[in-house]
C-alpha cells in the first residue's frame, strides 16, 4: 500500500525525486558520516561500551553530537535522569526543521509517511533536502526515504566498524582522516552555496556571528541553537529580505 502511494506521487511529476535520487543525494552525507561514526564507535569502546551498546546508541538515539555527550555522561557516571534531560535538550533544534522543510515543500506535499522518514531528519539530511528543493526538485516522500536511509545506514555501519576496529585504525593514513574530517564542512558549504541569495546575507551573517560567539562563550550545542534562532529572527526583522524561496 505504501509503495503504490509512493509511485503515484513520483510518476505525476518528473521533478519529484525518486528513492534512488534520494539515495544518490545521500552520498556526500554518507561519506561524511562514516568517519565520524567510526570515531564514535572507537570512543564508545574506549569508555567501556560493548559493540552492541555502541551500535544501539547509533541506531536508536541517532544524533551525533548527543551520542558523544552520552559517552562522556556514561563515563563520568552521571545520574540517569541528568543524562537523559541533557541529551534531550541537545535535540531541541530539530523542532525547527520540520516546519521549515514542509513550508518550503508547499501545501501539496504529502506527509503521509512523515512518521517514518522524519526519523532521519538530521542536520545534514535537512540541509540536503532543503538544497534540493531550492534547486527545483519537487518534494517527495520516496526521495526523503532514500536520503534518510543512506545517511542512517552509513551512520550505523561507521559505528559498527569503529567499535570493531578499536583505536588507531586510521592512524596510518592521516591525510585520509583529514580529508574525511572535512567532508561535513564541505557539504554544508556546498549546500549554503546552493540556497544562497543576496537577500539572505544578513541572516547568514547574524547566524555566523551568534554561532561563533555562543560556542566560544558557552558550548557547541548552545552555539548551534543560538545561531539558528538568531539567524531566523534576523529573517523576521529583515522585511525586505527572505521570502519563502530560500
Amino acid at each position: 500500500m505504501a509503495e503504490s502511494g509512493f509511485q503515484s506521487s513520483v510518476s505525476s511529476d518528473p521533478r519529484a525525486g525518486t528513492f534512488l535520487d534520494g539515495l544518490w543525494a545521500s552520498l556526500p552525507i554518507a561519506l561524511g558520516y562514516v568517519p565520524i561514526a567510526f570515531a564514535f564507535g572507537v570512543a564508545a569502546r574506549g569508555v567501556g561500551l560493548t559493540l552492541a551498546e555502541a551500535v544501539a546508541l547509533s541506531v536508536i538515539l541517532y544524533s551525533g553530537g548527543a551520542q558523544f555527550v552520552a559517552l562522556a555522561l556514561i563515563a563520568s557516571g552521571a545520574p540517569f535522569l541528568v543524562s537523559a534531560f541533557t541529551l534531550i535538550a541537545m535535540g531541541l533544534r530539530h523542532l525547527l526543521y520540520g516546519p521549515a522543510l514542509m513550508r518550503r515543500a508547499g501545501p501539496a506535499a504529502s506527509r503521509r509517511h512523515a512518521w517514518a522518514w522524519a526519523w532521519g531528519l538530521t542536520d545534514e539530511v535537512f540541509g540536503t533536502a532543503l538544497g534540493a528543493l531550492a534547486r527545483g526538485r519537487r518534494f517527495s516522500e520516496p526521495f526523503m526515504f532514500g536520503l534518510g536511509l543512506g545517511a542512517y545506514l552509513a551512520w550505523g555501519a561507521g559505528t559498527a566498524m569503529g567499535a570493531y576496529a578499536g583505536s588507531g585504525a586510521l592512524a596510518a593514513w592521516p591525510a585520509v582522516e583529514a580529508g574525511l574530517g572535512f567532508m561535513l564542512p564541505a557539504l554544508f558549504l556546498a549546500l549554503l552555496l546552493s540556497v544562497l541569495s543576496r537577500a539572505q546575507l544578513p541572516v547568514l551573517a547574524v547566524a555566523a556571528v551568534a554561532t561563533v560567539a555562543v560556542t566560544l562563550a558557552w558550548s557547541g550545542t548552545a552555539g548551534l541553537l543560538a545561531g539558528m534562532i538568531a539567524g531566523a529572527v534576523a529573517g523576521v526583522l529583515n522585511r525586505k529580505g527572505v521570502r519563502d524561496a530560500p
Partner: peptide, 22 residues
Amino acid sequence: RFLAATGPAAIGTLFVASALPL
C-alpha cells in the same frame, strides 16, 4: 519569514559550527 529564514540560518550555522574546530 521566520520559517523561510530558518533553512539558510541552519545551514550557515552548521557550516560555521563544523568548520570552527578546524
